[in-house]
Computed example of a mutant assay.
Amino acid sequence: MSPAEKRTYQALEDRTKALSIALGFRDYSTLEHSDRVQILAAELGMAVGLSEGQLSALRISSKFHDIGKIGIPDRILMKPDKLDRDDWEVMQRHPEIGEKIVCSTELDGAQQTAHIIRHHHEHFDGSGYPDNIAGEDIPIGARIISIVDSYDAMAFTRPYHRGRRHTEIITLITQETGVKHDPYLLKHFCQIIETSPNRIP
């Protein structure tokens, strides 16, 4: 990565810190989740040989993959019960909201980062959202975040599921190989997570 590219992503990261603070005030558990996803996403990105530029975009987009939840009403975001169909339709807007928030900074590198954020809930078989794209049409950063996001989300108790242990999570994630997750990336994730300091007990 050239010095100019490094400066671009460093500036983007520095100038979006306010977004992280805003998210923390809105929903601290989402901020904590985003911090964990950022660390694991970077581990996986390095393991599969992403370039410095790709890693920089991945670090920022993984940190802010859920920033769009700022735009989700409290009655849904903080709902103590399982979300119903209408609630999920609203919740599924958060990747597009996140894309708009990051693009609105008008900083160099924001478009690439926002593109990853928009697609982090796409599925490898095309059944995800918001655009139903599939396979390698999904940005690699988004495919990485999808895996790591699923791993971390399943580890902690939420209104719609109980927290699970590592072995159970790996079993469930591997069942989604080629459906929700990229088989190549998932294979590498299953290898690195076993020795990662960020492995769930």
Rank of each mutant, 00 (worst) to 15 (best):
A57K: 13
R59P: 02
I60M: 09
I60L: 10
K63W: 07
I67H: 08
K69A: 11
I70D: 02
I76A: 13
I76S: 11
P80N: 06
K82L: 13
R85F: 13
D86T: 04
D87M: 02
D87R: 05
E89S: 08
V90H: 07
Q92T: 03
Q92I: 05
R93E: 08
R93K: 08
E96Q: 07
E96V: 02
G98M: 02
K100H: 14
V102C: 10
C103Y: 12
S104M: 11
S104R: 07
E106Y: 10
E106N: 15
L107C: 13
D108G: 03
G109V: 14
G109T: 10
G109A: 10
A110I: 07
T113G: 04
I116K: 02
I116F: 11
I117D: 06
R118P: 07
H119C: 14
H120Q: 14
H121N: 15
H121M: 13
H123C: 15
H123K: 10
F124L: 00
D125N: 15
D125R: 12
G126H: 01
S127D: 09
S127Q: 14
S127Y: 10
D137R: 13
I138W: 05
P139R: 05
A142T: 01
I144K: 00
I145M: 03
I147H: 00
V148A: 06
Y151R: 01
D152K: 06
D152T: 08
A153H: 10
A155D: 06
F156K: 11
F156C: 08
T157D: 14
T157G: 02
T157P: 00
R158Q: 14
P159Q: 06
P159Y: 08
Y160R: 12
H161K: 07
R162V: 01
R165T: 09
I170G: 03
I173R: 03
I173N: 01
Q175N: 11
Q175A: 10
Q175W: 04
E176Y: 00
G178I: 01
K180R: 10
H181G: 00
H181Y: 01
H181S: 00
P183H: 12
P183K: 05
L186A: 11
H188P: 00
H188R: 15
